[in-house]
Amino acid sequence: MIQVESLRKTYLSRRRASGVGQALLSLVKPSRERIEALKDVSFSIERGEIVGYIGPNGAGKSTTIKVMCGILVPDSGVCLIKGRVPWKERAAHVAGIGVVFGQRSQLWWDVPVIDSFELLRDVYRVPGREYSASLEELVSALDLSPLLGQPARSLSLGQRMRCEMAASLLHSPDILFLDEPTIGLDAVSKLAVRAFIERANRERGVTVILTTHDMHDIEALVSRVILIGKGEILYDGGFEALVAGGRATGAGIEAVMAALYGEMGIA
């Protein structure tokens, strides 16, 4: 379903000057830095998998996700999703995926949630009957009925995230990209979101790619993790096998991950 091979991406980033002298200098000669966001990234994901894509901040997670969503063109390498190259057939590609950015909302701030959903129906050209079936299912699965009439700005973060999840699945995509979907949520909401991801995967057969820093998400949902650090894949396999050594010391999961990142030299 998803095939990624030797993906490479280098950014040129301009450094902001700090002092007045430097500021003047940078007018003449902007100093630039090469950042290798992805060095050689390869993996493949089968239909119906839930894969955790983990790694420390700045490891290249978002860059990979952006490439897979068609937002970013890599320097070289192959990315095939359902046989399509995301950035070459953007519209056809994105019609079949759902994306949740945990830190950004896709709902219209000032109007009732249901209006945002209807906009999305028109954006994705979902036929009427399909839309009502999909909506009904999502509303009951996520317990949205009391929220639909409220504007997004008045929702709590947990309520909003539930609506975001629904918004990303209205058009019944086969693949769901979740970028930190549980960030900032309280315990109840986290559990609800996890349960829903699990259910969407089981009942709708949605392939889920999940990035998160919360290892409890990973423990609860994921059998396979891909670990990226400094732009390279360092591990691809079962989560328990990755952390078994650390767990034996009796440390908590966060400490285990921190130690692991340290050992790999990517902390």
Partner: peptide, 18 residues
């Protein structure tokens, strides 16, 4: 700046229209 354009890119419609 607020990332809305990324959101627009992951939707299957013309960019200008969105």
């Amino acid at each position: 700046a607020n990332g809305e354009f990324d959101r627009i890119l992951v939707r299957p419609r013309g960019l200008m229209l969105q």
